[in-house]
Structure formats: structure tokens, C-alpha cells
């Protein structure tokens, strides 16, 4: 187990280095001079040159990369061009919102997607199954930001049940906080619910064909017990992986939905930064999400091996 863990951790390093290289490269390719962005277009050339030297911008690109990487490893992501607040601080302030929305939408996706898939498989090739499959495809095809607008239209503007925008921190009231998360969570989660239900259905169908299910049936167990106890338990193992991998899609969706519901998360932070050409923030946010994603994938991988006794640690 230790060897397996170490192996997986080591395999992560080249990908993480690649991620930092990609993020660094993207910003290098961006037109414009960071020194000019800080001092403004009216700055005199001597001051610009001095600042460029102080920032290390006159060094060759590989050296700049190593300097930047060294800073990143020390938790220093630079500071915003606009207000000189540390990027790490800005990200730390925005992260809880994005994280909460991701978790809420993951829960919504699981609550809708898993039962839908199980029911579809239990009633396979009936109209219930076809309806569920059509609903799943609906979920996969509907643009989350459009769904968000429709939900605002219905539940906020017409019915007035839920807030249309804004974020209430948890310490200002849990219910107020959650109320603001329901519509955005649903807008993001519905896609993953569709993906999940299709996957669970397929996994259940496969499990229902297995020998141990036939044995259970032969023992005289009812179809309900066979479906919900025997088959479902085994279909849930691969589902964990898919659920984990959905985190990536959810993160992407969350960033867009934050814009619809005016939630002050990483997505809104980076979009505002893109508009203001405040590149250290864009760089920091992209790096944070890339690294988070690689780590999530690793955790999913490890969880999978931990859950499934058939997988051996080693190779």
C-alpha cells in the first residue's frame, strides 16, 4: 500500500510541473508589459526599466519560470496589479464560495443522478427507463447558465421564493446561506446528475448480469432485494470514481454560474481580473484550479482502490 501510494504521488509530479509550465506559458504569451500595467501608460522609461529589473522581467524566460515556481512553492502567488493585495489572499477569500457551491452541486447531482440511474436499471426497457434516459440527456444538453436564468425567472422573480443573486456568508445564518446556494447548485449539478444517472444505469445493468446476482435469484431472493442490495452495492464502486471525476466539470460549471448569480467566488474573481488585465490573479486562479483538479483525481483514484477489494496495491 505504501509503495502504491508513493508511486502515485511520484507520478503526479510531472503532471503538476506541466500544469505550472502551462500556466506560466499562458501568461508569457499574453501581450503587454506587466510593468506598464502597474505604473500606467504615462510612466517614464527609466521607472519602467527599474521596475522590470526589480520584478525580474529582464531575465531569460526559463530563469523567470524557476523564480516564479520558487515563489509559488512558498505560497507567494504575487500581488494584484490593481490594489496590490496578495493573490493568495484574494484566492483564499474567494475559495470558500466556490468550494461550497461545488459541494452543494455535487450533492444535488448525487441525490438526483444516482436514484434515477438505479430506478432506470431496475425497470429496464420500460417507459420509466426511457423517460429517465431522456431526462438524463436533457440534463447533459441544457446549458447551465441558461437553466440558471430560467430558475431565477421562475423562483426569484415570479414566485419570490429564493434570492436571485448574492452570497450570504455562513456565519450570517446557515439558512440564508443555503437559500442562496440552491438555485446555483441546481444549475451546475443538473449536468452531472445526467452523467451520473447514465453511468449508474449502465453499471447496474452490468451488475445485474453477474453470476452472484443469478445465484441470489436462484436462492429465491426477491427481485427487489437482488436489485437494491446485491447489484446496487457493486454498482456503487465505479460510481465513486465517476462522482469524483465530476468535480472537474462542476468546477468549470461553478465558475460560469458564479457570474449568473453574482457569487464572489474564484470564477468571478478571475473574470474580473481578465477584464482588468490583472494577470497575476488569472495566473493564480488557473494554477489553483489545475492543482486542485490533479489532487482530486489522485484522491478519487486512492478512494477507488480502497473501496474495491479486487484491486491490488502494487503494479
Amino acid at each position: 500500500m505504501t509503495r502504491f501510494l508513493v508511486g502515485r504521488l511520484l507520478a503526479m509530479i510531472p503532471v503538476l510541473l506541466g500544469v505550472t509550465l502551462a500556466v506560466f506559458g499562458l501568461i508569457q504569451l499574453t501581450p503587454g508589459d506587466p510593468a506598464a500595467a502597474i505604473l500606467g501608460t504615462q510612466a517614464n522609461p527609466a521607472a519602467l526599466a527599474a521596475l522590470r529589473h526589480a520584478m525580474g522581467l529582464d531575465l531569460p524566460a526559463p530563469i523567470q519560470y524557476l523564480n516564479w515556481l520558487g515563489n509559488v512553492l512558498h505560497g507567494n502567488l504575487g500581488e494584484s496589479y490593481r490594489n496590490h493585495i496578495a493573490v493568495a489572499q484574494l484566492l483564499a477569500d474567494a475559495l470558500p464560495v466556490t468550494l461550497e457551491l461545488t459541494i452543494v452541486s455535487l450533492i444535488i447531482a448525487a441525490i438526483i443522478g444516482i436514484p434515477a440511474g438505479v430506478i432506470a436499471a431496475a425497470r429496464r426497457y420500460t417507459n420509466t427507463d426511457y423517460a429517465m434516459s431522456a431526462a438524463a440527456l436533457f440534463g447533459i444538453s441544457i446549458p447551465g447558465f441558461w437553466l440558471g436564468l430560467l430558475l431565477i425567472l421562475l423562483f426569484s422573480l415570479v414566485l419570490g421564493w429564493l434570492p436571485a443573486s448574492g452570497f450570504t456568508p455562513m456565519h450570517d445564518g446557515l439558512w440564508a446561506n443555503l437559500k442562496g446556494m440552491i438555485l446555483p447548485g441546481f444549475s451546475v449539478g443538473i449536468f452531472s446528475a445526467g452523467v451520473l444517472s447514465r453511468f449508474v444505469r449502465a453499471a447496474m445493468m452490468e451488475a445485474l448480469e453477474e453470476d452472484y446476482v443469478r445465484t441470489a435469484r436462484a436462492k429465491g431472493l426477491g427481485e427487489r432485494v437482488v436489485t437494491y442490495r446485491h447489484a446496487m452495492k457493486n454498482a456503487m464502486i465505479p460510481t465513486v470514481t465517476v462522482l469524483g471525476l465530476q468535480v472537474a466539470f462542476l468546477l468549470g460549471g461553478v465558475v460560469i454560474i458564479e457570474q449568473v448569480f453574482a457569487l464572489p467566488g474564484i470564477g468571478q474573481l478571475s473574470l474580473q481580473a481578465i477584464e482588468a488585465r490583472d494577470y497575476p490573479i488569472v495566473q493564480g486562479a488557473t494554477l489553483l484550479i489545475g492543482v486542485a483538479f490533479v489532487v482530486v483525481n489522485l484522491v478519487v483514484d486512492l478512494a477507488y482502490t480502497a473501496i474495491d477489494p479486487r484491486i491490488r496495491y502494487g503494479g
Binding site: 506541466g18 499562458l26 499574453t30 460549471g253 481578465i274
Partner: peptide, 24 residues
């Protein structure tokens, strides 16, 4: 394939956003 892994290490839409921020 490692380069592909790096591309896959970002949620697709976020990578697209980052590329758009760079290219204009």
C-alpha cells in the same frame, strides 16, 4: 501523452477561458 495529461488537468471550460484571456 504526458502533454495530453496536462491539458486534461484543467476543467475544459476553464482552460478555454484561460486561453481566451491570453489570446484575446
Amino acid at each position: 501523452m504526458r502533454i495530453m495529461d496536462v491539458l486534461l488537468a484543467f476543467p475544459a471550460i476553464l482552460l478555454a477561458i484561460a486561453i481566451m484571456a491570453t489570446l484575446g
